[in-house]
Structure formats: C-alpha cells, structure tokens
Design a binder for these strands. Structure first.
Lengths: 115, 115
DNA sequence: CGGGATCCTAAACGATACTG
DNA sequence: CAGTATCGTTTAGGATCCCG
C-alpha cells in the first residue's frame, strides 16, 4: 500500500460524479431505468436543455450512460445506464445515505451561523 | 420515498468532497491522523500554499477538520479530522475502491480514443 | 423533440510576492 | 512556519436563440 499515486484513484470517481446535475441524473436513471430526453428533463427540475445535454454528453463519454437515437419524426432519444455505470451505484448510495443521516448536522450548523 | 428533495442529499456529501485537493487531504488525515500544515503540504505534491489554505478553510468551515494553533515561534498548526469528518470515510473508501477496480476500464478507453 | 451555437458571469484554480 | 494579498487564467454554469 503506497501513497501518492494510489490516492488519486479517488479522483476518477469524483470527476465523473461532479457536476451540478450529474448525481440526480444518475440516480434517476438507476432508479427508473431508461428515459427519454424530455422525461429526464422533467425529472430534473430547474435544469436547462443545454445543461442536460452537456451533462449527458459527459456521462456518455465516460461510458457511464448510453444514448440510443430512434430515427423518426419527432425525434426520440433514450438514455440508460451502462453496466459500467451501474457500478457507481454503491458510491451514490453511500453519499445519499450520508447526506440523509447528517442533514441534522447541517441544520445545526446553519442555526449557529445565523447567530 | 419521494423523489426530488431527497435526491439532493447526495449533493451535500459531494459539495464537501469537491475540490481539486480535498479528497487527498482527507485521505491523508484519515490514514495518518493529525498533521502539521507543512507536513500536509508535503503529503499533497503540487499543491500551493494558497490552495492548501483554501481547501483547509473550506473543510474547517464544514466541520470536517479541526485546526489547532500553538502560539509559539516558529508557528505550529495542526489539522485533524473531526468525528463528524470521519463519517465521510466510507464514501472516500468506496470511491477509492471504485477508482482502483476500474483503472483497467480507463486504460482501455484511452487506447480507444488514441486510435 | 432533442438538440447545437453563441455569449456571458461567477467561481475555481494558480503563480508570485510578501509577512508576523 | 504558516500563512495573506494580489493578480491573472481557466472552467463550470447559465440565458438566449436557432434548427432539422
């Protein structure tokens, strides 16, 4: 067990997950399976079309999700997790559980700061 | 189990961990315990003093680490994980394991892209 | 319907120099 | 030793408009 290069392995997962909307997108796809672009947009309130496209492109390039285009009018594009992407679930679950367990701590800190 | 507000819990953990150097800083403190500023700087190759200070301040403000100042010349400042901060370890470990397990996948992708 | 192209702002990051 | 202060660069995020 050495130190420096190995610790950087944390960044690989982090870089994939970082982005204002990526965790929500991934959790939605994990929980609800394949989704169309417009359905995904509805599942992520507040996101713009451009940002949704950006985040999906990032995730696609990392092989976390796949993009399936149906050549028809009107267009139809479906997104879903890859098998590789699904391996991220434990991390997302761990973060979700942490956030849920410590929302109390956050509340206390906020009330301190307002004093 | 509802959807929208609950999914945001993921972002709480993510926001704490995000930062170019925070994961390495945290893993170092978790593995090696209390550290002085200069020792920490040595453990994080490439970081500037300013960035180290910034990241430490962020983590301190989130109650993830504590800062203990010894009033002496030359100055001595020690940083260590709080009990609250230590609860992040499972997440960091999960990310580290994921990064380690999938470094092969990353290599394959890189060789694809170079073609 | 599912984008792409353009422009803009705020924040993160970084290099360098200085200090109690 | 452990920082600030200042400056410049880079990047993420977002608003808006256009398109097949």
């Amino acid at each position: 067990m050495e130190m420096k290069p190995e610790l950087c392995n944390v960044d690989d997962a982090l870089n994939i997950l970082v982005g204002k909307w990526k965790p929500i997108i991934l959790l939605t796809l994990l929980k609800e399976g394949t989704k169309r672009f417009s359905d995904l947009k509805r599942s992520v309130p507040g996101i713009t079309q451009k940002m949704l496209t950006n985040q999906l492109r990032d995730l696609e390039q990392e092989d976390i999700i796949t993009r399936k285009v149906y050549l028809q009018v009107p267009p139809k594009v479906e997104y879903s997790m890859t098998e590789y992407g699904k391996t991220l679930e434990p991390i997302l679950v761990a973060m979700h559980e942490w956030g849920t367990a410590h929302s109390v701590h956050k509340m206390q800190k906020m009330s301190q700061e307002s004093r």
